[in-house]
Design a protein around this nucleic acid. Sequence first.
RNA 1: GAUUCCGUAGCUCAGCUGGUAGAGCAUAACACUUUUAAUGUUGGGGUCCUGGGUUCGAAUCCCAGCGGGAUCACCA
Length: 573
Amino acid sequence: MSIALSEQEIIRRESLQQLRALGINPYPAEAFDVNAWAQDITDNFAIKPEAYQNVVIAGRIMTRRIMGSASFAELQDSTGRIQIYLKRDDICPDEDKTLYNTVFKKLLDIGDYIGIKGYVFLTQTGEISVHVRDLIVLSKSLKPLPVVKREDDGTIHDGFTDPELRYRQRYVDLTVNPAYKQIFINRSKVISSMRNYFNNQGWMEVETPILQPVHGGAAARPFATHHNTLDMPLFLRIANELYLKRLIVAGFDGVYEFGKMFRNEGMDRTHNPEFTAMEIYVAYKDYIWMMAMVEECLETVAKAVHGIPVVQVGSNEINFAGPYEKLSMYDSILKYTGIDVSAMDEAGLREVCAELKIDVNPTMGKGKLIDEIFSAKVEHNLIQPTYITDYPIEMTPLAKKHRTKDGLVERFELFVNGKEIANAYSELNDPIDQRERLEEQLILAGRGDDEAMAMDDDFLRALEYGMPPTSGLGIGIDRLVMLMTNQSTIQEVLFFPQMRPEKKAKVVTIEDFTNIGVPAEWVPVLNKMGFNTVEELKAANPNKVFNDLGGMRKKMKLDITMPTKEEVMAWFK
RNA sequence: GAUUCCGUAGCUCAGCUGGUAGAGCAUAACACUUUUAAUGUUGGGGUCCUGGGUUCGAAUCCCAGCGGGAUCACCA
């Protein structure tokens, strides 16, 4: 990126100046109140045409078809596009035809915001259009939008599809590819319907700290930061679980939070460094109760988005109406491999892994080995919503020990379309057991496991005061939205997914060059030659620069005085 | 992290075994009163990602780097 503007950007800036010269403010301050929208007009004009005889609409010009003293354009507002029809003598009834001939035809461009007043009619080819009586410039666009052309049959030409540009410039993406807006509208529906469901049960939405002195509640590497006044390290939360449990200790029956979590780990199509989780904790409940609640909640969400509980995801039709299949971890492995691992010791599990050709390493314990078998052989089979229950205790330090089965905890994960989307426990509320389990994590950390959970003494203190039996649930909202909107990458359901930093052009002023003696009119020429900084220029061969300047002068047909060789040599002093 | 493909005009993309850089749209000018991927005529617009190498000559071949996509692995 150089500091030079493209030809089209220069032309638009000139148009901007000409608008001002005509006394037209390209960025007026006054409100422009509309009384109609594109979607509304196209849906309802045929039913009651009399209601659309004085419409005021606003939006961006997206296409223009100029035919002498009449023109068609398409205006895009937040609801869609509608064609507008302009006739010179209608918008310029007097002698002065400037508004049409100059402003509309010359000075306005694709992407500009305009407001119009007029009446709706049907063209000869039967397209609902707005016949313009008044036109006002609302905002001039200085960068050309990519022009995506659509045929009536929906064929798209010159699509704006490069994922990098789409994600970096989401504002352009959603302008020229408005169909993607529906994903975000549905995302909003997922969250609001879930929130409504919880509120209707009487549970309370809360906010807990994002900046935490101890990062607890999950196994992940955190982002670290520092508070200056307190001169202390802080972490962006990797989970909010331990704070929500403190609120159960405090005496709330049900608390939930939608919030961003931050994990300093890899990025791919299912992981973004910051993501949205919903966690809810309800007192006096257990994980069996929670399963029924999740079924009811997700059915509500699916209906809010699609009207029915069945959602098309890829080639699968997922039915979110409960009850869901329930399988214990061991039974699921039995079902999909025919092997009963429930009574096996570590050595036996290793044999099974070898038999199933699953890669393992010597550091893996019993719980990890079982998880490997599950991931390799079971997970991808779980298409319809399925609860996997009763996990080995080793990997779950915050869940209560199973009421009847030794070595297991009361936990379930919900799998849909082969992916985990929810995780729930009967929460561990025995403070002595909890302390021991966190101490085991400390040992893991000491052995170099940088994802082991940290000790949180204040959390343990809270438990020691007494937490009622509680069931807790976490749902990955981004992944749930991916399911509900049939998207295969997390980037598509985030407005602004994390990207590598853009290579940024050094901001250079003309003064930097004139300070070393370069005449101002030659600075753009140097930029054109690739010298965007004084340092780059000084690193070049002065003789070659002098020769090239002459070449550029000829090539660009510049009518400016050529500096002498001595003057050029002086730039390099 | 591995494999693989890609990087050319504002946008979407061609460009063969190496020989003066192309199209459509956008843009500029002219014409045109119901078009709709409007049309017709004429013009302008390029660091062929960056840096090396091979060559008389590189967008093209080789090496390295940067950026991106896809698949896989790791990780929640």
